[in-house]
Simulated assay, not measured.
Amino acid sequence: MATTAVDVKELPNSYVFVADMPGLKHSEIKVQVQVENDSVLKISGEKKRDDFASDTEIKYVRVERSAGKFMRKFNLPANANLDGISAACQDGLLTVIVPKNPPPDPHRPRTFDVNVGSSTVPPP
């Protein structure tokens, strides 16, 4: 199974995955998020070699371009917003954007007044 190069960037509000996809059509690329025990982003596809099967006179002299199925998996952080993931492919680059959930509000101590009455407090 082949692999593809992927850059992962963290921005203030999202994680961005950029993968090389030269020569692939949208239909040949699959982006999945698996949520079971962990959140996993899976990028897969298949690079196909030119098919000259009908012409038996052609033989390859040199083969340098990779072909075959590829897959990459990435564990997503706990603050990833799985429902907001989007992907687009343009000019041979697949960009997957995983938004971050907003951080929880910091715990702030609260102060409030308690009225003190003149009667006694009943025993528990």
Results as ranks from 00 to 15, higher is better:
1 M>F: 14
1 M>Q: 14
5 A>L: 12
6 V>N: 04
9 K>T: 11
11 L>F: 08
12 P>N: 02
12 P>A: 02
14 S>T: 03
15 Y>R: 02
18 V>G: 07
18 V>Y: 04
19 A>K: 01
21 M>D: 01
28 E>K: 05
31 V>L: 01
32 Q>H: 11
32 Q>L: 12
33 V>S: 03
38 D>W: 10
40 V>I: 15
42 K>C: 07
42 K>D: 07
44 S>K: 06
45 G>F: 00
45 G>R: 01
48 K>V: 14
53 A>R: 13
54 S>V: 12
55 D>S: 09
56 T>V: 09
56 T>C: 05
60 Y>K: 13
61 V>F: 09
61 V>E: 09
63 V>Q: 12
63 V>L: 11
65 R>N: 12
65 R>E: 12
68 G>S: 06
71 M>P: 02
72 R>H: 05
77 P>N: 06
77 P>S: 04
78 A>Y: 06
79 N>W: 07
80 A>I: 04
83 D>F: 03
86 S>M: 02
86 S>C: 01
87 A>Q: 03
87 A>Y: 00
88 A>K: 12
91 D>S: 13
91 D>P: 03
91 D>E: 13
93 L>G: 09
93 L>P: 03
94 L>R: 00
95 T>A: 06
95 T>P: 05
98 V>G: 01
102 P>F: 04
102 P>T: 02
103 P>M: 08
104 P>K: 07
104 P>W: 04
104 P>G: 06
109 P>F: 08
110 R>W: 10
111 T>Y: 11
112 F>V: 05
112 F>I: 08
113 D>N: 09
114 V>H: 05
115 N>P: 04
116 V>A: 10
116 V>Y: 08
117 G>L: 06
117 G>E: 07
117 G>F: 07
122 P>Y: 01
